[in-house]
Design a protein around this nucleic acid. Structure first.
Lengths: 250, 250
DNA sequence: TACCGTCTGTTCGTTTTCGTACAGACGGTC
DNA sequence: GACCGTCTGTACGAAAACGAACAGACGGTA
């Protein structure tokens, strides 16, 4: 496990890890390891994508920026997924942007290779389609949550989703960043986070948030977190996935 | 054109109309014309879908119902699309529901046939994937709109999207229905619609809304309507679509 | 150690939406 | 023509989030 930190490995991405040898092998030489620094924009609105990114230790936020400059996250992508689905879905561009929300690594694959791999129609195609379906669920639930739930509930949801992808429970994000992800004022986050800290669920200091009581956060969160998590598990963890994740490829 | 009303025709659905003869022919005998009465639920959460529906004159609303009973629309589907993408994306079910928002007709195709047609990989597969991408855009924009825009702006958006699918400009929907689609109170719709009527943009009476000034509505609407419309046009109206829609198949 | 930029905390009035309650009006049915 | 269910209009206080302004605190750098 500790080797995972010192030596990045494509198997850290769940989609890549699920591929059988004969599908992974031809891709592996083409996969390029890239650093994903916090704040880096992978693509902007209507920009031709050059690569698909398979995050391993990084988290990427998909969001839309309004003419006013305001923005809101519509979904986020970690090691369970891939950034750049429009490359194989057919549009090549999207109206949204993709920005690194948690720094780390990713493997990227050049545009034409993504399309070719998808069209060759093996397990990878199935996986990518299922992942896209889980992304739909995530966006739909974000829409519902934005309509009906409080800033505090949405903060819990965001923290939990991030936590699921950062096993050590130590999130590196300022309140300002959280606010821009959720599309609310920074002050709103200050108050909500203050309440959570007062009640012993989290603790934070200048850009670092530690989750102290995960169950507490879940109890305080709206149902949206669970809906997305269950649906992603269902779509991506059934018979398609039988390999334990971090272990060497058989 | 008037024949379109008296005799339902699969060509009224844009996806079906775009198919070349050799792909449409084997499907045509399997397409079942169904009436879509207002309020009919095509499927509920986690329910195994039995058919995909290709609307012609009907409009279907995809939405999520919270434990509290509140709900919110995440996307809507008319003649440009298909209801039941999880059949070919791989999940078979979704956490959302699909309900008829405007009564009319649709053609439905049995589950296995949908999967077979998708997997045979012709133009239909391309079309379905592109349509799914447009659905992603729609959901993402709904999330953003729910976060940042007023009830009145969202009402305009909803009316415009419906209007695009109901050419005669006479919408059959109560304020109660509109409220449940947008996930707001009925009173909020009363006020917003009252303002629009006062300013001469619409007129309504007991469940019937007439749009009097389309440009006015667009001016009053947020950018979200245009974003979705342009993106759908781009994804579904390029080289894949060259046939004029209502005309007989060549 | 002093400094300074960034991050966090707090305040206050404003706006929007919510929740609740009830009144009025339309239109189809008996 | 009277009735009644449904749809629409209005009002009022409560709650949530916003916008703007400013104070304080942390922590890296000079």
């Amino acid at each position: 496990m500790s080797a995972a930190f010192s030596s990045p490995n494509p198997n850290q991405n769940h989609l890549l890890a699920a591929l059988p040898m004969d599908e992974f092998e031809p891709l592996s030489a083409q996969l390029e390891l890239v650093m994903m620094p916090l704040g880096k924009m992978l693509y902007g609105p209507d920009e031709q994508l050059q690569h698909a990114y398979f995050p391993t230790t990084s988290i990427v936020s998909l969001h839309y920026i309004l003419e006013s400059g305001a923005s809101a996250e519509t979904a986020s992508v970690g090691a369970e997924g891939v950034v750049g689905i429009s490359l194989f879905m057919g549009g090549d561009t999207t109206s949204s942007s993709a920005v690194v929300q948690t720094s780390g690594h990713a493997y990227r694959l050049e545009r034409r290779l993504v399309k070719a791999a998808f069209n060759s129609g093996g397990l990878l195609q199935k996986l990518l389609l299922r992942y896209t379906q889980s992304l739909l669920t995530q966006m739909a639930q974000t829409a519902v949550c934005n309509r009906h739930h409080s800033v505090e509930q949405q903060l819990c949801r965001s923290l939990l989703h991030t936590l699921d992808r950062i096993p050590d429970g130590e999130l590196v994000m300022t309140q300002e960043l959280l606010a821009s992800l959720l599309g609310v004022r920074r002050e709103g986050i200050t108050v909500a986070a203050g309440n959570l800290q007062r009640d012993g669920l989290i603790s934070y200091r200048r850009g670092h948030i530690s989750v102290l009581d995960r169950e507490g956060l879940e109890a305080r969160c709206c149902e949206c977190y669970g809906v997305v998590k269950r649906e992603c598990a269902r779509l991506l963890s059934d018979e398609l996935y039988r390999q334990p994740l971090p272990v060497a490829r058989r």
